[in-house]
Nucleic acid binder design. Structure first.
Length: 647
RNA sequence: GCGCCAGUAGCUCAGCUGGAUAGAGUAACAGACUACGAAUCUGUGGGUCACGAGUUCGAAUCUUGUCUGGCGCGCCA
């Protein structure tokens, strides 16, 4: 498994808009008061076989700058030295076999001398740089492996690790692309090709370059590469739905309900056609044909991996366009995408008992049976060539088409069949997590269930409102085209599962939510989840430290007001579960946790828990701590958040 | 236009089957480790509960009107 880790030794850096954008139009064209989060770009790649560094930070002892309103760029305040940051990641200098140098500047080449045993790969045109003189282990790269994707010159320096000529920022600049074959992902490490993501989106060069023409060319190629976005990725709306849905299931199960978790996959329809067509196009591309992708198709490079997999397994078997090959590409594409989604969700602590597919329903006989049933009941009529369901006889405000003029079913008909099938399996209550943009769906489905004689209350939809994402005070629009949206996977990777789950669980799903990326990513330590987890860790370490004083045989003597408050809060756990289950409101659990953690912290600060001189009181207090630990652990588990013993 | 959801401290949100002085986190400021983890604790400042009218002994909470924002109103899924 390949791992890519940032080596972080300074934090809180920024670049101003004139600095990051002003390369071509000049700094004066931009707003000097706009600052973007910016960091030093140094990474470690652990391929599983060897450890490779991309750049080596600033030399130890480089003084911090002191920024003011006029500072164009600031590299941040010291957290530790570069070498210490490397050690903090768990790596020693002598484990590093290769170093890939994007360019000569001191904040990238700083500690090269500390790795005498590693091979330092550097663009042949960078060799004369003053920063590189006196190093005996330089490997000049002449880019012998030809083009890599849309970059004309490259060299593979390790399995799946490509060093690529990308000049302009310096005359011997290079970038690194790492392929993660398992995930079908590409990581592009661009050094200082851009200082901030916003400049990349806005297509602006920074003011630092040695060859403007080449810098522009490099920027265009990097943009072309990264704009190809992966398909099927979950976005933050899904994150919210998943976090809430899973927590609701946990809470209902805890409250004594028998819960089955299902995922319904809409694997039919236009979008899926586009996916299949895109996979087909990539597959044909592998056989030397020009790439045939329409505007609405998926341009994601991850599809190349899928196509390569098909070629490996089946050779040229699917080159001929037939009904079978058409279906094959769709099915294969879906399978891979679904695998990715399930892995993302599983990493997020969300699991399903059953996955139902729209395609299975369409393939079976249930649709015909359902239509026959509805027709017999008189709920179906035709108008202008299409077939409608009389949902407006029940709760809906208009009738809904179930068969299009061209004879295809709409999405709604398989959905109805799916819900009938679920009721048929004997469930009392169907609960669906729906994004706010599917609001109109609820009464439609309730109406359909009523046609079959079910109570409209058997179907309930919990709506979670749209997540608006803000970055630097501006809304980040979710757009597949621009690749601007942060994906679920990226967020979880950067902030951590626990923090993300707690963040979404903390809030009522039916309120609008503004998600500040700067806050989530840079100040992640401030997330309330750490407050609760710390309380748990504290309890653990108290119990460990006083383990010889624990005595479960005594009757605890607890008299202080604080102890009373804690006992009260602990006693409310069952009724809190009941309330949270009834309202299907995970945030009630989060509020409870927060309150309990607060009481624990306050108690700890005010009371000496372990007193070697007083066995009975100490044992009493430790019993209380033990109870707190159990409750807070159980409560966190309901939200899918871990309860670490150490932090 | 119609429907649904929302508007509470600078920011993010609780409080809504009516009940006493509207809470928390965060941000700001001031303090606290030679006791068990300072990812903590203690304190200070900060609100016309969008606005108006009504019901009531009593309204952030219920009714109604207005304003603002989000979403929906497809032979899309």
């Amino acid at each position: 498994m390949i791992k890519i880790l940032p080596v972080i030794y300074r934090e809180g850096g920024f670049a101003t808009q004139p600095f990051a954008f002003g390369g071509e139009e000049g700094p004066a064209a931009f707003d000097a008061t706009v600052r973007y989060r910016s960091g030093l770009q140094n990474y470690l790649i652990d391929t599983g076989k060897e450890v490779i560094l991309v750049d080596t930070g600033l030399p130890a002892g480089t003084p911090e700058e002191s920024p003011d309103e006029t500072t164009p760029i600031y590299t941040g305040h010291d957290v530790m030295s570069y070498m210490d940051a490397l050690a903090a990641l768990g790596y020693a200098p002598n484990q590093v076999s290769k170093i890939l140098l994007t360019h000569k500047h001191a904040d990238h080449s700083g500690e090269l001398a500390s790795f005498p045993d590693a091979e330092v790969y550097v663009n042949e045109h960078e060799l004369d740089a003053a920063e590189l003189q006196g190093l005996a282990n330089l490997v000049p790269v002449t880019f012998t492996d030809g083009p890599y994707k849309n970059f004309p010159e490259s060299q593979e320096v390790a399995d799946g690790v490509w060093f690529i000529r990308a000049e302009g920022h310096t005359k011997g600049n290079a970038i690194v692309i790492v392929e993660d074959a398992e995930e079908g992902l590409f990581y592009l490490i661009h050094g200082d090709v851009t200082y901030v993501d916003e400049a990349l989106y806005a297509n602006k060069l920074s003011v630092v370059f040695e060859d403007l023409g080449k810098a522009r060319e490099t920027m265009d190629r990097v943009r072309e590469f990264v704009s190809a976005n992966p398909t099927g990725d979950l976005h933050l709306g899904h994150t919210r739905g998943a976090a809430l849905g899973d927590s609701v299931c946990n809470i209902l199960a805890k409250a004594g309900y028998d819960v089955t978790r299902e995922y319904y996959l809409n694997n039919c329809g236009n979008q899926v056609e586009h996916l299949g067509h895109s996979v087909r196009a990539r597959y044909h591309e592998l056989f030397g044909e020009p790439l045939d992708l329409g505007d609405d198709d998926y341009h994601g490079v991850d599809l190349i991996k899928i196509a390569e997999g098909i070629k490996e397994q089946y050779g040229d078997k699917w080159l001929k366009d037939t009904k079978e090959s058409h279906d094959f590409f769709i099915e294969h594409g879906i399978e891979v995408e679904l695998g990715k989604i399930m892995k993302d969700l599983s990493d997020f602590g969300v699991h399903f008992d059953k996955i139902s597919k729209e395609s299975d329903i369409r393939a079976g006989s249930t649709i015909a049976d359902t239509i026959a049933f509805l027709k017999e009941k008189g709920y179906v009529y035709e108008s202008e060539g299409a077939t409608y369901l009389r949902t407006s006889d029940f709760l809906d405000d208009k009738d809904r088409p179930i068969i299009k003029k061209d004879g295809c079913y709409t999405y709604f008909l398989p959905d109805v069949c799916y819900h009938y099938e679920k009721m048929n399996r004997g469930f009392d209550q169907l609960i669906v997590m729906l994004g706010a943009d599917h609001f109109g769906y609820i009464n439609r489905m309730k109406s359909a269930l009523m046609m079959k004689g079910y109570s409209p209350d058997a179907y309930e939809a919990d709506i979670y409102q749209i997540v608006r994402v803000y970055k630097d005070g501006e809304e980040v629009k979710m757009s597949k085209r621009t690749g601007k949206a942060i994906t679920h996977r990226e967020l979880v990777a950067e902030v951590g599962k626990d923090a993300v789950r707690y963040f979404f669980a903390e809030r009522n799903g039916d309120t609008h939510l503004d998600f500040d990326l700067n806050l989530a990513t840079s100040h992640s330590k401030d997330n309330p989840v750490y407050y609760a987890q710390y309380a748990h860790a504290r309890c653990t370490s108290l119990l460990e430290m006083g383990k010889d004083m624990v005595d479960d045989s005594i009757t605890p003597v607890l008299a202080s007001a604080k102890e009373g408050d804690i006992l009260k809060q602990l006693a409310q756990f069952p009724s809190m579960i009941e309330a949270a289950a009834n309202a299907r409101a995970p945030y009630k659990v989060a509020n409870y946790i927060q309150k309990l953690a607060q009481l624990i912290h306050e108690y700890y600060a005010a009371t000496k828990i372990i007193d070697r001189e007083d066995k009975v009181s100490t044992a009493s207090r430790l019993s209380l701590i033990k109870a707190c630990r159990i409750v807070i652990r159980n409560a966190l588990a309901l939200l899918g958040v871990s309860a670490p013993d150490k932090m």
